[in-house]
Simulated scan of single mutants.
Amino acid sequence: MPTARPDSETSLRYLRQVQFAALGTEGQKRLARARVLVCGCGALGTMVANHLVRAGVGYVRLVDRDLVDLSNLHRQCLFDEQDAHQELPKAVAAAEKLQSINSEVRVEPIVADIRSDTIGALARDIDLLVDGTDNFETRFLLNDYAIREKIPWVFAACLGAQGQVMVILPGETPCLRCLIPTLPPAGAVPTCETAGILGPTVGVVASLEAMEALKILAGRHEAVTRDLIVVNLWPVTLRQISLAGLRDPLCPTCGQGRFEFLEHRRESTSVTLCGRKTVQVTPAEGRCDLDEIYNRWSALGEVERSPYFLRLRTPDWTLTLFPDGRALITGIEDPVLGRTIYARFVGM
């Protein structure tokens, strides 16, 4: 639980941001009462959570299914080598760091997979959803939940030296499916594992995402950016793409009120195969381009190619990917780990 602080100490902590007139004392009080769900504690999630906790957002719930790995450290700012060597859950390691940064706020870590049967409990009593996920299936699920429950959320994504940020205010702005109507097929979108990611890219995108979150939580909706923000840091460009008129009455989510990802109609599955140390992952959208994925995997390790499948071998597991998007991951038994590996190396 947070430790009580004298008012003078609290005032000193937030003095510089309260002096920013657009936020002010009233905005700071709103932040202290706000409750946020950070969905994913990877690169974006840790940096956004860091900003929100330092800013004095009163309650931050962190949800992530993964463990800290050495390959995370160049961009996931709350983790260190000890976290990686201990293989701590990301949500737990992040919460420990954040609570030591600001004991006035409450940080709740939850080690879980965000799915249609868990999102309701994870997002209970929350004022804002913040995107720190690594796949579009989960983002479409968040979009469904946010629109149905009328909760604002901030979408963000980054890859290489590029990133995007978009605020979704239910009933006011286009939703994610107005912008991206259909779920990209498995393997259609490169991932950080296959295309790489630069740490400063995450820093810029996460800062933009956190700034929009603070505007919403402080009750300053008039200042919220209603455009799609697109950044490229190599070379440097920043664009705001107007979304005026994009809100679509035929959008299955915000236009027609169909919540396909929330109601189990469109969801990937991962199951442990009986009698085998193998997890099968079946994506929500089938078919994938094995030639394109082969090119991405070629620099990652030993890749076997046949007319019927691709196979990526690592010291810990072997991933066999079929043209219908289905994958067998041999060497593991945890379905949640199977989804994590699939999202990182194929994409959902």
Rank of each mutant, 00 (worst) to 15 (best):
M211W: 11
P200N: 03
T225I: 10
A327P: 12
G203L: 06
T25V: 12
E172T: 03
A84M: 07
W317D: 11
A299V: 14
I293F: 07
G219H: 03
A284S: 10
L44T: 07
W297T: 13
P170E: 01
G347A: 08
M47W: 14
L129V: 09
L208I: 03
L290F: 08
D324N: 14
Q19H: 10
R226K: 14
I114E: 02
M211V: 11
I229C: 04
L273K: 04
G275K: 04
T182M: 10
C274R: 15
A112R: 15
D69W: 06
A95F: 00
D113Q: 15
L128G: 01
P152K: 04
S100R: 15
G255R: 05
T173P: 03
V60C: 06
G257M: 09
A146V: 00
R65T: 15
T314D: 02
L12F: 15
A157H: 01
G58I: 02
G45E: 07
V281H: 09
P323K: 05
Q86P: 03
S116I: 12
D117T: 13
E333M: 12
G27M: 04
V130W: 03
Q86V: 14
R139V: 11
S298P: 11
I147C: 05
R313T: 13
L273V: 02
R148H: 09
S207T: 13
R33K: 12
Q280L: 13
P184A: 00
V48E: 01
L78V: 14
S207I: 07
L62A: 04
R311S: 13
A34K: 02
I114L: 01
E108W: 06
M47C: 14
N102S: 05
K29Q: 14
L176Y: 09
V154D: 01
D248G: 05
D324A: 01
D80H: 04
E108K: 12
G347H: 11
R313K: 15
E172L: 07
N72S: 02
D66K: 04
